[in-house]
Design a protein around this nucleic acid. Structure first.
Lengths: 218, 218
DNA sequence: CACTGGGCGTTACCGCAAGTAACAAGCACG
DNA sequence: CGTGCTTGTTACTTGCGGTAACGCCCAGTG
């Protein structure tokens, strides 16, 4: 069936094109109204109605996952570039922190969408309520895994190196995220100051610094 | 109006008692069904109907905030105790990490409830969608602030000490949270191993460790 | 040419959860 | 007794995610 194959290809590529358009419409709405945007609103922005969205993405979390993937891919590319530069280790760490913080500072709406926790579509947990764990946003998981792989590959951590790298990867990402979230809300200092303090923390200053002179109680 | 005062006091204390009962019923339901429990289910568990819940707590996020406060208070008390012990700094840090991880390991349902992000009742953001920042769960914010205060009080961080302490407080809490969340999901190692790796990270091992021997590209 | 199948699109609906209005009963106090 | 407050109810509205059932168009086929 030659003709039918061609037909399939053509319709398939057209469908993908359509899907991209729908994603872009969804992106506009989500960046305007936040993650609580309704499917109706997204469909309206795309000039269509709900059932089409559902045909393309299954359900809302499917749409949001597709949307999050795009932004996450872009962000990860930035971070990888910063982490992979041929500098001193400290410089690379600072550059990576700065890249992340620049991203969330420049596009807080994207940040908000990526962190909002409505994209948890696990299939095999219905019989028992045991979907504990996995509360960080997928973007954080991916960043953590990525960084873990990088650490395991580049650093000599000896035995237990695999586990240590994973702990460090997720831990460092969590540190960056929490500090960034706090900073984004209050904005008490300039970005480079924040970066320096975080790098200091990672560089062991917590262990090196002395007790406070006047601290009577301890 | 002596009698009316007494009456007020009595009814007030009775209302508080009732409120406690309602909170305990809500707690049972939430720990059984997860944070997506419906107000109907909670009311049923308490043996009443919805409007009474709304009279007591305003709305669902009010109820959840009251519920979260209890658990957060308890958790913070534990952490404070671990952090305040008269040991070496490293021992105290490890004890605190272990206290947190023990808590989330022992009662993952509580953890799940505390981390779920449905308790965001900000009042002054309706005109513009600018409630960016503040995506971590309130429990993380509180832990971060608490730790920041502790650090600022005990450690001699020189100038910029206030800011540095806040960055570190939120950063360390975020590190602990992210690593704990990952660990709780996969459970690849025992708790004390995780604690050691996290403490190593805080103690600057990231800076101290060498490049991997076979790492050609760099 | 008539015809038929499948993708695009619609309207109209279901179920469910948050939140509210309006009303009923117990009970202390004047 | 009756008045007012708290506790409680039923029954509703609104808004969302998700779906069923149907119309349209148009490429290929006999």
């Amino acid at each position: 069936m030659d003709t039918s194959q061609r037909r399939e290809q053509r319709t398939a590529s057209a469908a993908e094109e359509r899907r991209r358009e729908l994603l872009e419409a969804a992106d506009r709405v989500v960046l305007r109204d936040g993650p609580e945007a309704s499917m109706n609103a997204i469909a309206a922005e795309a000039g269509i109605t709900k059932p089409i969205l559902y045909r393309h993405f299954g359900d809302k979390s499917g749409l949001y996952r597709a949307l999050a993937k795009r932004h996450t891919d872009a962000l990860l590319a930035n971070l990888r570039a910063a982490l992979d530069a041929p500098n001193e280790r400290r410089d690379r760490v600072e550059a990576t922190l700065d890249a992340y913080l620049s991203a969330i500072e420049a596009r807080p709406q994207v940040y908000r969408f990526l962190m909002h926790p409505a994209e948890n579509a696990n299939a095999a947990d219905s019989d028992r309520g045991f979907d504990i764990g996995r509360h960080s946003a997928p973007v954080l998981r991916r960043m953590g895994e990525e960084l873990a792989g990088f650490i395991a590959e580049r650093l000599d951590l000896g035995p237990e190196g695999e586990v240590a790298a994973r702990v460090w990867g997720h831990g460092i990402v969590g540190m960056m995220h929490a500090a960034g979230d706090w900073w984004l809300g209050e904005r008490p200092v300039a970005r480079d100051v924040l970066v320096r303090h975080l790098a200091d923390l990672l560089w062991g200053r917590l262990a090196a610094v002395g007790d406070r002179p006047g601290a009577a109680r301890l």
